[in-house]
């Protein structure tokens, strides 16, 4: 087997006195899609925060902006052999985007609302030493079904709908081509049709680029569509993990069964 892209072992973390993750272990291999499912508050978002390195303050202004800090108690998170729990902000800056990409829960909020999209693309690409090629962006927009790409590039995010912004985030992921793509509740803010389109686009990314992905969702329907493996998270622990088909067909933990019953099937929606 190839070297693991992401290797989380015995990770415990929390905010202040409160422990949110306890002894989480997960492994992700190249080209694999892992879905971490669980209710809100189960700790899955915190897991993403740790991988994104949000336990490190980026600047002093950032330090002041946050009320309580993400704190890692024990364990390790290795990304391609590199330890993420102890990296510096500048290493993190270089890694985010091109090595670890994130499609946040609310992509509209992750863009500067009043700056033209082309400027935002240019800044992001230049930050990673990638040449700004408008033609390339237009091709990417076309490939994920964003019509009138030139016109769109002159728009500002506040003028676009939530679904549009979500696709722009996907476009960013395609242009930066990260080794590992993290997706935080990508479809929760979308209506059903848009959600299906976005899932299709992500599936295409997986097929065409062999991208490794970590999905975090409370929606097992999505897990069924896209995941190779599924990990069920409950109260900060991984209670069950296995290949998607098996796990969904024969849930061994009672919590998984409950999650499955609660979530309507994607096809029925």
């Amino acid at each position: 087997m190839t070297e693991a892209v992401l290797q989380i072992s015995d990770l415990s973390a929390g905010y202040g006195q409160e422990q949110v993750l306890s002894q989480v272990s997960l492994t992700l291999h190249q080209g694999e899609v892992l879905c971490v499912a669980g209710e809100s508050g189960s700790g899955k978002s915190t897991l993403l925060q740790v991988i994104c390195g949000n336990h490190l303050p980026v600047s002093d202004a950032d330090r002041a902006g946050r009320a309580s800090f993400l704190r890692i108690e024990s364990g390790s998170v290795r990304f391609q052999g590199e330890e993420l729990t102890v990296t510096s902000p500048s290493q993190r800056r270089k890694r985010m985007g091109t090595q670890i990409g994130l499609i946040p829960q609310n992509p509209a909020g992750s863009f500067n609302p009043v700056r033209r999209l082309d400027a935002q693309f240019r800044e992001t690409l230049k930050s990673h030493g990638i040449a700004y090629d408008r033609g390339e962006i237009v091709r990417v927009f076309d490939s994920i079904g964003l019509s009138e790409p030139e016109k769109l590039l002159r728009c500002r995010p506040y003028e676009l709908s939530g679904g549009m912004n979500q696709r722009i985030a996907v476009a960013f992921a395609m242009l930066l081509a990260p080794t590992l793509l993290l997706c935080d509740e990508v479809t929760s803010a979308l209506d059903v049709t848009t959600a299906i389109t976005v899932i299709d686009e992500l599936l295409k990314l997986k097929r065409e680029r062999n991208m490794t992905m970590l999905f975090v969702t409370h929606h097992l329907g999505i897990a069924r569509e896209i995941a190779d493996r599924i990990a069920i998270m409950h109260r900060g622990r991984i209670v069950e993990e296995g290949p998607a088909k098996e796990l969904l067909a024969h849930p061994s933990h009672e919590y998984t069964g409950k999650l499955l019953r609660d979530v309507p099937r994607m096809a029925e929606m």
Binding site: V58, R95, G97, G109, F111, T124
Partner: peptide, 18 residues
């Protein structure tokens, strides 16, 4: 600085100067 887009840009690895 406390707006969401600042965090979003950091997650995309945008340089501090931008």
């Amino acid at each position: 600085l406390s707006e969401d887009y600042v965090g979003g840009m950091r997650m995309r690895g945008v340089k501090e100067r931008f």
